[in-house]
Design a binder for these strands. Structure first.
Length: 775
DNA sequence: CACCCATCACATATT
DNA sequence: GTGATGGGTG
């Protein structure tokens, strides 16, 4: 481990700076430090705010917006603020609204790149041969289109997966290359068919009246370039431009910004090169490094005072990131008190790691570690990839720790939600072939591969959409038997729904329910007896609820493609399980960072792809992770990890070696990884030795857990009377594992033989009689 | 044509 | 372990 003395943040303690700052000044400047204030008050001309983690950049940004308005420099409607995620946009909206006076009806243009471009493109759709009600395709839809095209080109999709084509086209779009100007260097891409398929794909999107994420930006760039008057109009409209997370912008977004800002150059970019973790998505750190060249008279402000993390946490993060070569360089400091050291834990395997963290969480909740008590909502587990989450989920389910998952399958990506949305889409536009494809045989209508192929052939033969093709086929008796009757019914229903969708008197939520009902889609899930079916029905209900928040189906559809965030990020009741990527911008009093092993973190894939650059990006990811912690930060690794259903030996992450000794404390007990150095013992050969080392049952944490468990109240609202009111052989339902039969009762736990999941020991509070299962 | 079962590749992160 | 796919059967 390194022990360079260069990362001590305590040496620079400013006395009373904040107090001085607070003197005088208008309300929106209160509480800002000198640097923040400078960034806020320099309204005219280009400004680059280099804002380290936890240095209050959101405050600075929102104050800046307030300042521009209060100074009368511009009206809210003439300010454009671009963020990277919907979550960030929402937060800024809230804070701007709070700054503003009570009448705050007028808001700045505030949203993600895609959001803003969506709004603009709806107004000018005809300039790129689209209608104003174009649909936004998600990844799944895109791949489906590409798959059809690749199939038509007789490409062996076993050898050339469509995912790959998707990734290639995406990366081209990130660089703002249209199919006309993809450079020759790329001509071998995707078996030399990449560029041609890109062209076909774009043509197909126009036919479908659809765009993908990249197109939202690209179309606006080409409109700005071709139509001076339109560009001029928006340059006048957006007098002041603010960009959050500038280090995450790709070339296309960069060009878009420059087009808008080059007139007045009133652009303020906020970013942190050390938190650039989206290189794989086309983000160019170069954008931020180049800012001063792009705008020679730019004012550069550094925000370096950290208000979030304790000094040991901050030092550890600083030390780690100092290993990166390509960075602008910042020195974060804090005047927060002593605080806890960063803890490092070593475990036998990944299950052990999950168990240990579970125990720690229970201790933290009860304050048995000597600190204050922490509520579950104050605790987060940050993982490198989503597959790490399962071990924690299973652990938390059996021990009854409430948790939420962020960054798993998103609401709008769930199968049932996408199916339902396809029904909405086809109702709005019968031309939506993708939607028709999706729903034509869901629920089963006896229209299988053969029938669907006939419809497709009829469509391309007649040059019409699938719905029309199906009509033609029906007239010609091209489909027979039960399938024909069902198809007739479906087509009639579609016609009716389409009429209702246009009728302003029909409530769109009623129509949505009607569609799910009449189509038999809801019934399909009601009939399904798999453990996930109730949850899916619940999701459909939730979808209808969300629908109610919009004016009409059309309005909902316009937003749905862009709202991919999980909403319930700040659930105070639950431990958060989240990926490092989606944790950026968040903070938690207690943070666990499991899985610091070579190959997993840093990820082998990232390193293979980008070499040293990849390593540096992974290190930035580690930096982001550590700096999410306010009070307590715990890193851990396992010497044995389950993946692909089998376990393999692992070695600790190189990042562990880079941690500064003086800020680290070893958290695992002697006998396992606790040789004082924090480095793991050499892996023992004999099985007995391995078993001995894994004996965490003797650990204080485990004993505490045993004691605590008896006094703990159930943490989720469940039927109290039901506790252990079961008998052997009784049939029960479990939210996660589905149906099963009780084989053993053991205190507050039961062993259940689940139909799907097999034998599991679960807390009795979490199983129900089959008919009492909460939906 | 639907259903069931075996087989296979497979997972870095996301607007 | 999971989800997608393909072949065989009813």
């Amino acid at each position: 481990m390194s022990s360079e003395g260069s990362c001590n943040p305590l040496k620079k303690i400013p006395l009373g700076v904040r107090a001085m700052d607070a003197i005088a000044g208008t309300s929106h400047l209160d509480g800002l430090n000198t640097a923040q204030r400078e960034a806020v008050q320099t309204i005219e001309g280009p400004v680059l705010m280099l804002a380290g983690a936890g240095t209050g950049k959101t405050s600075a940004l929102t104050s800046r917006i307030a300042h521009i308005i209060n100074e009368g420099a511009a009206k809210p409607g003439n300010i454009l603020a671009v963020t990277f995620t919907n979550k960030a946009a929402r937060e800024m909206k809230d804070r701007v609204a709070r700054h503003g006076n009570a009448d705050g009806a007028a808001m700045p243009w505030l949203g993600t790149f895609h959001n803003i471009c969506n709004k603009l493109l709806r107004r000018h759709a005809e300039l790129v041969d689209l209608k104003t009600n174009f649909t936004i395709l998600d990844r799944d839809d895109q791949l489906r289109v590409m798959d059809q095209l690749a199939a038509a080109s007789e490409i062996d999709r076993k050898k050339w997966p469509v995912r790959q084509l998707g990734a290639i086209i995406d990366s081209w779009k990130n660089r703002a290359w249209t199919h006309e100007n993809v450079p020759q260097s790329q001509k071998l891409a995707y078996n030399s068919k990449g560029i041609e398929l890109y062209r076909q794909y774009e043509d197909r999107l126009v036919e479908l009246n659809a765009v993908d994420f990249g197109n939202l930006i690209l179309h606006m760039i080409s409109i700005f370039r071709k139509h001076d008057d339109i560009l001029e109009k928006y340059r006048r409209r957006f007098q002041y431009i603010l960009v959050d997370e500038y280090q995450d912008t790709n070339v296309a977004q960069y060009l878009w910004l420059r087009l808008l800002a080059d007139g007045h150059k009133n652009i303020c970019c906020v970013g942190d090169d050390d938190q650039s973790i989206y290189g794989w998505r086309g983000a160019e750190v170069e954008n931020i490094l180049r800012f001063e060249k792009d705008y020679p008279n730019a004012k550069v402000v550094r925000l370096e005072q950290n208000y979030r993390s304790g000094p040991h946490i901050l030092s550890t993060a600083s030390c780690l990131i100092a290993k990166n070569k390509r960075r602008l360089g910042k020195e974060l400091w804090t005047d927060l008190g002593e605080g806890e050291k960063v803890r490092l834990a070593c475990h036998f395997n990944s299950d052990e790691e999950a168990r240990w963290i579970g125990e720690e969480i229970e201790s933290l909740q009860h304050g048995t570690r000597g600190q204050r008590r922490y509520s579950p909502g104050e605790i987060a587990i940050l993982v490198r990839n989503t597959s790490q989450m399962r071990a924690f989920e299973e652990r938390f389910i059996t021990t009854g720790i409430p948790y939420i998952v962020v960054g798993g399958p998103r609401f709008y990506e769930r199968m049932e939600i996408r199916d339902a949305i396809a029904y909405f889409r086809i109702a709005i536009s019968p031309l939506d072939d993708l939607a028709f494809d999706r729903i034509v045989n869901k629920p089963k209508r006896g229209l299988g591969n053969v029938a669907q192929r006939k419809i497709h052939d009829a469509a391309s033969g007649n040059g019409v959409c699938l719905v029309d093709a199906a009509e033609i086929l029906m007239e010609q008796n091209g489909i027979r038997g039960a399938g024909a009757r069902e198809l007739r019914l479906l087509l009639d229903q579609l016609a009716i729904w389409n009429r209702l969708a246009r009728d302003p008197k029909t409530s769109h939520t009623d129509l949505a329910m009607k569609m799910l009902d009449e189509s038999g889609y809801s019934a399909m899930w009601q009939k399904t007896r798999t453990p996930d079916a109730p949850g899916r029905l619940e999701n459909l209900k939730e979808l209808i609820n969300v629908l109610g928040e919009f004016e009409n189906l059309q309005g909902f559809m316009e937003h749905v493609g862009l709202i991919m965030d999980n909403d319930s990020v700040d659930d105070v009741e639950k431990v958060t399980l989240i990926t490092l990527h989606s944790a950026k911008g968040l903070e938690y009093p207690v943070v666990f960072l499991p899985g610091w092993e070579e190959g997993l973190f840093p990820s082998k894939l990232a390193m293979d792809e980008k070499g040293e650059l990849g390593e540096e990006e992974e290190r930035r990811l580690a930096y982001v992770g550590i700096t999410r912690a306010m009070e307590l930060c715990t890193l851990s690794f396992a010497q044995n990890r389950w993946m692909y259903g089998s376990s393999s030996d692992t070695i600790p992450s190189r990042f562990i070696d880079e941690l500064p000794d003086e800020h680290i404390e070893i958290a695992t007990d002697s006998g396992y990884g606790g040789n004082g150095s924090g480095r793991p013992e050499p892996f023992p050969d004999s099985l007995e030795e391995r078993a001995a080392r894994a004996d965490v049952y003797k650990s204080p944490g485990w004993r505490r857990l045993q004691q605590n468990r008896n006094v703990r109240k159930p943490q989720l609202p469940v039927m109290e009377a039901e506790i252990c009111d079961y008998s052997i052989g009784e049939r029960v339902f479990h939210m996660k594992f589905g149906y099963g039969r009780i084989v053993e009762i053991d205190g507050d736990k039961v062993v259940v033989d689940f139909d799907k999941a097999g034998l599991k020991r679960v807390v009795a509070n979490y199983v129900f009689p089959p008919d009492a299962a909460p939906l």
